[in-house]
């Protein structure tokens, strides 16, 4: 497997097909937790961690449990269950081992279970790196890298958005546009800017 493929996946997941701004995955936390920079960054880190781990775990589940037993139609059920259990587990471990980190990330972890970015990256890996049910060469590494890069793209978008929204607090704007509407319109402009990366030939 060559490095250029990895680089392509990273650039694609972070910029060209940014999970939030171009694929529309994980909008709830993007809108909900982007009011201030600090919690936004914590959310980004938590999501990146869960996305990377979910990519790895769902790859293992698909390759070694679903495929050999010919039960790939259970993909949706098994992926969501595995992700939910994993998030629960992480929450328990973090609470026991690192109370400070738990206080910073704790409230976001349960929200991540129903974050479509996590389920989305698992399904996308599955669709991109398994052809007709057979894994492509190096699909494990590719999945891992795509999970990590997608998380990085998520963090980038939520950080940018929180920086802009902090400024909004001080601005004078029509009452009706305050809050959600202006956030969406800003996201639209950001998305337009990210669309510029689409011309990137790799």
């Amino acid at each position: 497997m060559d490095v250029s493929k990895l680089v392509m996946i990273i650039i694609s997941a972070v910029f060209v097909n940014n999970f939030i701004l171009s694929r529309f995955l994980g909008l709830c936390p993007f809108i909900g937790v982007s009011k201030e920079t600090k919690p936004a960054f914590s959310m980004g880190v938590a999501v990146t961690f869960v996305m990377t781990s979910a990519s790895v775990i769902t790859w293992i589940v698909y390759r070694y449990i679903l495929q050999p037993n010919n039960i790939t139609y259970l993909r949706t059920v098994s992926f969501i269950l595995v992700i939910a259990v994993f998030v629960q587990l992480v929450e328990m471990v973090v609470r026991k081992t690192n109370p400070a980190l738990f206080r910073a990330l704790g409230i976001y972890l349960p929200l991540i279970t129903t974050n479509c970015a996590v389920m989305g990256v698992a399904l996308l890996n599955n669709e991109m790196f398994f052809e007709a049910g057979h894994p492509l060469a190096g699909s494990f590494i590719l999945s891992l890298v795509q999970g990590l890069a997608a998380g990085a793209g998520f963090t980038l978008a939520i950080l940018l958005m929180s920086g802009i929204r902090e400024r909004f607090e001080l601005m004078d704007m029509p009452e009706a546009m305050k809050g959600l509407p202006v956030t969406f319109i800003t996201a639209s402009l950001m998305s337009l800017a990210f669309l510029g990366f689409a011309g990137f030939k790799l």
Binding site: P174, E175, A176, M177, P181, V182, F184, A187, S188, S191
Partner: peptide, 25 residues
């Protein structure tokens, strides 16, 4: 073309929610 791509979706939803808010106010 922008409207059927990603930015158009966000823009439309932003203005629609804005309109709903405006009506409520």
């Amino acid at each position: 073309l922008m409207m059927i791509m990603a930015p158009g979706a966000l823009l439309t939803l932003g203005f629609l929610i804005g309109a709903v808010n405006w009506y409520r106010i």
